[in-house]
Design a protein around this nucleic acid. Structure first.
Lengths: 313, 313
DNA sequence: CTCTTTGCCTCAGTTTTTCTCATACCAAAT
DNA sequence: ATTTGGTATGAGAAAAACTGAGGCAAAGAG
């Protein structure tokens, strides 16, 4: 291999040649117009040949530029083709994710990622925080109760678990009218956890002295939620996970209280994973999805929205 | 064009794959071993695929790596081929150079550059300093008498004009025995310049009160030198320009004095030139050649060598 | 004919990438 | 057990690339 010209300059040139515009090329490359101008100039200086004729409001290729562009296009295509092949051949992203989040939020959205980024994702649900390094996964999306912290080295806070109490509207005399706290506490309470951790934090954050007594105790959010839908009582649920039930009226909030953050979801990447680039895309997509769906309440919750980050410390 | 992998990483990978060694690839790329290691890792992370199997003292390609390397080689060859074509099609370097330097030093060496760098050079000699921008040349190699300065914006000092008096040995009774200054001044003096500028500086630098009277006055160094070789007298000559005559005994130094720098050669690049890359190579080659020939005297001059930078200010 | 728009160039300052150096590690060979 | 030849890795340094603002000149609108 002899002396290759600066490769990034070649890339910039190839796109500029295709577009016959530095400005458009810059857009495609996600850089500024000046950057492209410089790269092309650099290449011209390297080769000792003018590649473009600069006209006053347009560009055209010199014969040399034309030759180069013609050779470059297939070379780059070939490279990008083989890169795509390799990327698609590579095994799917393996991600451990908190169970409820997976079922109620991630799964319904996942096909969007897979189609947009041509990357398969293999999900495995977990109940308790897990370190992706230890289980050989590329990343984990874990839930930890309590205030924000750093559950694992390298973990990144993604979003809050914002809880509100909900129940079947038939449980209420007038679903339109919020109950007083006293009335509310007389409703049957559904725990989603053996120790009623979330209810504890919720009542502490709202300054309620005693823990609401459970009438039924479940092991998972999903079960408690099912029972609530069936009219067995009030459960605490992450707002974002029941948006459909809320908008369809299967569940309503019986009382008008601020949202309470009982825990947080974290993102942890396995630093040994080779799939850094896909992981980054996935992470970016996660944040995007979160911004679009979390904390953005349906119409009827508007009054609830001036929510607080009350935490039970 | 979709998403291209980082191109420099591809280059590093291609060479490493060819060599099956990061260390050797690093040498070829003129970077450190660690740099190649990092680039390859980066590429692997980008593609999400292992490209090499790292063994204990060797590398081997994974199937994916093999595929990539196979595709990459022709793509890069194609690129470097077209780049070579363009470079060779480009017009020759145009350089203005001081006349004596050109005749006595540059021309004999020039074919070395042209063969090693596959770049033609078009030389034009000049007597007086010239700005390459003004004459449309890529660069100039100019001579300016007197102490070092900055004759043109962007000029760079290349080497000193180190002068010594020389004459035909037949002019001396005993060529082996250095003359005293008094004896020396009785020899016929040859000026290489209408005003005897160099002799003026030479005598000033050595603390000689009066300017040696010329017996013959020429317009160029070359003519004065020819006359000296023919035995017409003593001329002042740049050491490096008469190394052959000295080693063949056609000229000798009649007196034992330090070398005197009467002027300097400068390198000036036309900043508008497109041939920056070739110019850089040429400049590098110039410095290399200078280091190998200038200031490095032949055996017989050894005594003269503890030279001075005496200057007539 | 003047004003505005468009698209390129240039420069200084900053950010990002890449490289180096030194060191750690590991297994084979001595 | 030690040396040797190779890769990996971390911190800091160096180099490359990018940005953003200002300029300029042609083309088109009024």
């Amino acid at each position: 291999m002899k002396q290759l010209p600066p490769l990034n300059a070649l890339k910039a040139f190839a796109i500029a040649a295709e577009q016959l515009s530095f400005t458009r090329a810059a857009d495609l490359l996600n850089v500024s117009q000046g950057a492209v101008s410089r790269q092309v100039r650099l290449l011209e200086e390297h080769l000792g040949v003018e590649l473009f004729q600069r006209h006053h409001r347009s560009l055209s290729l010199t014969p040399e530029g034309h030759l180069l562009a013609q050779e470059l296009a297939p070379a780059f295509n070939r490279i990008s083709a083989v890169a795509d092949t390799l990327r698609s051949q590579s095994r799917p992203l393996r991600i451990k994710a908190a169970a409820t989040l997976t079922n109620r939020w991630l799964l319904p959205r996942l096909h969007d990622f897979e189609s947009r980024h041509a990357g398969k994702v293999q999900l495995a649900t977990v109940r308790t925080p897990v370190n992706p390094i230890e289980v050989g996964f590329d990343a984990a999306l874990i839930y930890c109760p309590g205030p924000p912290h750093t559950p694992l080295p390298g973990s990144e806070l993604l979003f809050e678990e914002l809880m509100m109490p909900v129940c079947n509207p038939l449980l209420l005399d007038d679903p339109e009218k919020p109950l007083s706290m006293e009335q509310f506490l007389r409703l049957p309470i559904l725990w989603n956890h053996a120790e009623g951790r979330d209810w504890q934090q919720w009542s502490a954050a709202l300054g309620i002295s005693e823990l609401p007594e459970p009438s039924l105790i479940f092991d998972t959010d999903t079960e408690a939620m099912q029972a609530a839908i069936s009219g067995h009582g009030v459960c605490l649920s992450n707002l974002s996970f029941i948006s459909r039930e809320l908008s369809e009226g299967q569940l309503v909030s019986p009382i008008d209280t601020p949202l309470v953050a009982t825990g947080h979801y974290y993102w942890v990447v396995n630093p040994q994973s080779l799939k850094k680039s896909l992981l980054e895309q996935f992470h970016h997509w996660l944040c995007e999805q979160a911004a679009a769906s979390m904390w953005i309440t349906e119409e009827e919750e508007e009054t609830v929205y001036p929510a607080a980050n009350h935490r039970a410390d």
